[in-house]
Design a protein around this nucleic acid. Structure first.
Lengths: 351, 351
DNA sequence: CTCAAAATGAGTTGCGTACCTCAAAACACC
DNA sequence: GGTGTTTTGAGGTACGCAACTCATTTTGAG
């Protein structure tokens, strides 16, 4: 009827007694300090293991004294998604200062490898942890590795650099996101056959490329009645996206679906809402895009957009902080908790 | 370019000096202990406010000494959703014991108000916090209020008792969940017209009733071509659900959609997979249900089920612990973080 | 066996708060 | 003014660990 999930509360002193050594030696083992025989190390580790001893977080935190410094390296442009991340970090201030954590925002041009790498270099050695929205480029990869070597914990945010030695990635699986978009477009089109348009920022961006890959995968294998048109590269700009898409819609009368991979949503929506189009009596185009912002929220409510694939920015911000903290403390990471899920947002489950 | 989100690290001593009182007095104010003139209380509060002082969580936790005890009151039956919650709590053991938190599972018949209330009464006074999957019934409400009066922090889990004085509810908005299910069934049916079946556990359960309400709302207002059949009450049992549904499918040849509100999924799926049905050359029935379990996962992959509305059980378990801890510490709750979102899970974004 | 180096023990201090005691001061009341 | 009560100050101890010093023991190489 009742079952306890936790163990007794041992202290380092107990471990020392168990292992037959002094507190000083346990301390040396626990912090990988030199001057302990391998044999003794093993005995201490065994005692810790046997009793599944967990150092008291509060005591450890209190004893170390100095506060921890984390840096968030974010794009400098007016990106709503990033602004939301900043906003959520702002909401955590009480939480952060109660734990004596200092979080600093560093903005930079994350799309220029050299600039980004330079920004990262300036942080070297000064921070316990760094979260960075990273471009996947050799220069950036080197900068990240340098940070790691300097002792910082590094977490990539939103966009990963898998070839670097970063400690963790906080963000979604973009291939799965693309697959989900594909499934949604296919299903929501509802059996009609026709063409599907894809608008992306650039196929050079890792996350965009991966999403397109996943999207095509699903379309090819599961919706043979739908054919995907060549990807339009709108560079995440509204005007350009609108023009390209408008032209495409003009050329193909049988477009029934649209996947907008990145930003430029405003332009895409305008191209879809074009008067000439609706007057031609064409079917509604199923429109699936990314991220819940003020704009996409409105479009979903209006029925212009049918579904948004969303990675909760608040969750990303908080997860990044928690992961950095856990890494800095040497605690295990709750992988399930820190995993960023792919949310499907439709009108009725708008958050 | 760089911006800090946190404030200086003051201590209680600083506040005492600021307010012109001694440490003891600050302590009395902070813990609402008696024996301080209202005027002095104000001076201390002002000093705290002015400096936006935050007590050091780690120090407070260390000083109080004794561990905190939390109880989770859960249904005793073999409910996969609840089992997942237990499993996720199990994964947190390291996290919990590092914070000296004791979590105990108490199983009981949560569907019997008297039994549940009795279980709650036995916990009175012994726990810092209680999370309970609660039936909304006057007896239970009273028991919850008693717990609150005895000094425990109380959180309702999955199913709420809004009229009680519980401190927090960790779970989804079930009306919105029903609306989402409605939108999914409607959209995935893809323009066909016909009838929609609804299978629930019982309309007496608050969460089921709310889901049905939301579902009907959307169906009525947005999908006039679909008519919802009277709700089948399967009592969350497989056999009963299967029989009822099979009979209904036999009577109505034009059922195109199905919403399974609660459990009994196995039976529902079997009724749908009935040979006689497929041999009759009928269209596929769009099937939307709740929760991602081993079973629904399989059904989604097989294409039998089209979408699952999910409230992430891991998230619920962790949120309940975090909320109880924050309440016990007197910390503010990060509402955005602890809000349980309604996830739409389809084959391609299976977690 | 000798001696230096390596390993270990014993101990201290401090982190910021909770919680407690006891004495002193301020106050209210008659 | 004296009395009793309320309010405040001063100080101590404890929590579990990090980080450090210094003395002592053990070890291994010559």
């Amino acid at each position: 009827m009742a079952e306890t999930l936790t163990t007794a509360a041992l202290t380092l002193k107990d471990i020392a007694r168990e292992a037959g050594v002094s507190l000083a030696t346990v301390d040396r083992v626990l912090h990988n300090r030199p001057g302990v025989r391998p044999d003794t190390v093993r005995r201490v580790r065994d005692a810790i293991e046997r009793n599944s001893f967990q150092p008291h977080v509060a005591a450890a935190e209190l004893a170390r004294g100095r506060a921890r410094r984390f840096a968030f390296v974010m794009p400098s442009g007016p990106n709503p998604f990033m602004q939301q991340i900043e906003a959520y970090l702002g909401e955590m201030t009480a939480w952060l200062s109660a734990r004596r954590l200092n979080v600093e925002m560093v903005t930079t041009d994350v799309f220029d490898a050299a600039v980004l790498a330079a920004s990262l270099e300036t942080l070297s050695g000064d921070y316990d942890g760094v979260a960075v929205v990273a471009l996947d480029h050799p220069t950036v990869r080197a900068a990240i590795n340098d940070l790691v070597d300097a002792g910082s914990k590094v977490v990539t945010l939103v966009s990963d650099v898998p070839s670097s030695r970063r400690h963790h990635y906080v963000g979604i699986d973009n291939i799965a996101a693309g697959r989900t978009a594909g499934a949604l477009v296919g299903r929501l089109v509802g059996g009609r056959s026709g063409k599907v348009a894809v608008v992306a920022g650039s196929q050079g961006l890792r996350d965009h490329a991966e999403r397109i890959f996943g999207f095509n995968q699903v379309m090819a294998s599961e919706f043979p009645d739908l054919s995907v048109l060549p990807v339009l590269e709108g560079r995440d700009e509204d005007e350009r996206s609108e023009q390209l898409l408008a032209r495409l819609l003009g050329r193909h009368a049988d477009i029934v679906g649209l996947y907008n991979v990145g930003a430029g949503t405003q332009g895409v929506a305008q191209a879809l809402n074009n008067k000439a189009l609706s007057e031609a009596g064409r079917d509604k185009v199923v429109f699936v895009g990314h991220d819940v912002t003020a704009l996409t929220r409105r479009l979903l409510l209006q029925g212009v957009m049918d579904a948004a694939i969303s990675q909760n920015p608040g969750h990303e911000a908080r997860a990044a902080v928690r992961v950095l903290l856990a890494l800095a403390r040497g605690e295990p990471i709750l992988r399930e908790q820190e995993k960023i899920r792919i949310d499907i947002v439709m009108r009725d489950n708008l958050p």
